[in-house]
Computed example of a mutant assay.
Amino acid sequence: MDQQTSTPDGLWLVSWFIANAPWIYAGCASAAFRFVYQWGVDHRPVRTAASEAFMCGAVVSVSAPVAAVVGFNETWAMVVGIAVGLAGPEVVRSAAVERLRAAGRAAAKVLFKGDDDAGH
């Protein structure tokens, strides 16, 4: 192995941070905006505003690999991640639960199609 191209053992975290710096900055900015909005405008407690802001920042920071799997390029992945992060955990959670319930009802209709009149 070539020693000049390999990363020293202690510097892998630094190289990872440099490679992912735009996403980390976007996550921090989204968290800051969400915290200011919830604490200043909605007058929520500091602990609630801080925890939800942290979740929004985490959503933005991890949206790069998820968007790459879905097929977005990096620019659109950033836009989608920030939009989801600023929407907040309540909006994302309620949308996900609604989609999962709809998918569960559709699967139940397919799986148990003839069970209603089988025993009667």
Results as ranks from 00 to 15, higher is better:
Pro8Ser: 09
Asp9Ser: 11
Asp9Phe: 06
Gly10Met: 03
Gly10Arg: 11
Leu11His: 07
Trp12Tyr: 15
Val14Pro: 00
Val14Tyr: 13
Ile24Phe: 10
Ala26Val: 00
Gly27Met: 00
Cys28Ile: 15
Ala29Arg: 05
Ser30Gln: 01
Ala32Lys: 04
Ala32Leu: 14
Phe35Ile: 08
Phe35Cys: 05
Phe35Arg: 00
Val36Ala: 09
Tyr37Met: 06
Trp39Met: 05
Val41Ile: 12
Asp42Trp: 10
Arg44Ile: 14
Pro45Val: 12
Pro45Tyr: 00
Val46Leu: 13
Val46Met: 12
Thr48Asp: 15
Thr48His: 11
Ala50Glu: 02
Ala53Cys: 04
Ala53Gln: 04
Gly57Arg: 08
Gly57Asn: 04
Val60Trp: 03
Val62Ser: 12
Ser63Trp: 01
Ser63Glu: 04
Val66Ser: 04
Ala67Glu: 09
Val69Gly: 08
Glu74Tyr: 12
Thr75Glu: 12
Trp76Ala: 09
Ala77Cys: 11
Val84Met: 14
Leu86Met: 07
Leu86Ile: 01
Glu90Ala: 09
Val92Cys: 08
Arg93Ala: 10
Arg93Cys: 11
Glu98Pro: 03
Leu100Lys: 02
Ala103Val: 10
Gly104Lys: 11
Ala106Leu: 12
Ala106Gly: 02
Val110Tyr: 14
Phe112Gly: 08
Lys113Pro: 00
Asp117Ser: 13
Asp117Met: 14
